[in-house]
């Protein structure tokens, strides 16, 4: 390992990667917190969000030059993608999960896997399997700050993920609706008896989680292009992040995501794990966590209720 600037470089790379994992992990953890099931279609919602964002951006910007206006257009495209993904997330819940709410716990899980296949195959059918480029809304030449290269794209990721995470945390801790979400995740029946419309809370949870996934999808796509199966690996990694942080725990998902990003980056850079084996880091960590602290870093061990 080299100089201090090299450490900062890896730290920066790890944080940006982790910010994206965290955004996706939040969707898994919020849904789990309320419905106690893993929405395996979450990665595909991310994929749809990336496509919508790309189409919206390409349509809106025309042949506009780089500049502040283009950034505005980019954020408008991002918001459109968030809204459409949110609607998609709510629709999936209504169609594929809600009818199974009283079924065995395995049923919605299988339904989610089904939805995930349908979405990725539908995307391949409609948009083709070829990956498409999502153009940067700016000139992505790296700045050099004290020997650390930072690209505008990385700044974008850090700013967007920070704002969304802080916003979400405030929303859940401070607002009436956030309280309704917490109450619903603690005890659905009692929440209803307090006058909370549990179905609405569940819809909103899917909407928020899906909106965050769309944003993450766009941020990923700027570097790695848009294609129908792009959500699979991103989704799995973020799922690992959510479990590492303690599934169901909002702060845990953020911590887990960032930690995973850092570990992957440092694993490759410092431990010399070959780039091709990078993905094994996440799943290795998953195995270790499940063996050592199955409730996750911030999760609480749940005793089986009698």
């Amino acid at each position: 390992m080299g100089s201090i600037s090299e450490v900062f470089q890896h730290l920066l790379n790890g944080l940006t990667l982790g910010g994206i994992y965290a955004l996706i992990a939040l969707g898994y953890t919020m849904v789990y917190g309320i419905l106690k099931f893993i929405n395996f279609a979450h990665g595909e919602i991310l994929m749809v969000g990336a496509y919508v964002g790309m189409f919206a951006f390409d349509f809106l910007r025309g042949d506009m030059p780089y500049g502040p206006l283009m950034l505005v257009v980019f954020f408008i495209a991002m918001i459109i993608a968030m809204i459409i993904s949110a609607v998609l997330g709510m629709a999936i819940e209504k169609i594929a999960y809600k009818p199974l709410r009283k079924a065995t716990r395995l049923a919605p899980l299988l339904s989610a896997i089904g939805v995930s296949f349908i979405l990725s195959n539908l995307a391949a059918y409609i948009w083709g399997t070829k990956s498409r480029k999502f153009d940067y809304p700016f000139d992505n030449t790296a700045y050099n700050i004290g020997g650390v290269a930072i690209t505008p794209h990385q700044i974008l990721i850090l700013v967007v993920s920070m704002i969304l995470m802080i916003g979400l945390k405030l929303y859940i801790d401070k607002t009436r609706m956030g309280k309704a979400m917490r109450a619903t995740s603690l005890d659905q029946d009692v929440a209803a008896l307090m006058g909370i419309d549990v179905n609405k809370v569940i819809s909103l949870t899917f909407a928020i989680g899906s909106g965050l996934a769309a944003t993450a999808g766009i941020l990923v796509a700027l570097d790695f292009k848009v294609y129908p199966t792009m959500g699979a690996m991103a989704g799995l990694k973020a799922f690992v992040a959510a479990v590492v942080g303690g599934i169901g725990n909002i702060t845990g998902a953020m911590v887990g995501g960032i930690l995973l990003g850092l570990l992957e980056t440092f694993g490759v850079a410092v431990l010399g794990i070959p780039q091709g084996l990078k993905d094994t880091i996440a799943f290795g960590i998953l195995i270790i966590i499940l063996l050592v602290k199955p409730e996750g870093l911030l999760g609480k061990a749940e005793r089986e209720k009698v």
């Binding site: 607002t175 009436r176 609706m177 309280k179 309704a180 929440a191 307090m194 006058g195 909370i196 809370v201």
Partner: peptide
């Protein structure tokens, strides 16, 4: 907080404020 939740949703007005 337990008691506040009991009070919060009494009004029944749209929760998405």
């Amino acid at each position: 907080e337990n008691v506040m939740i009991g009070r919060h949703f009494k009004s029944g007005r749209s929760m998405i404020s």
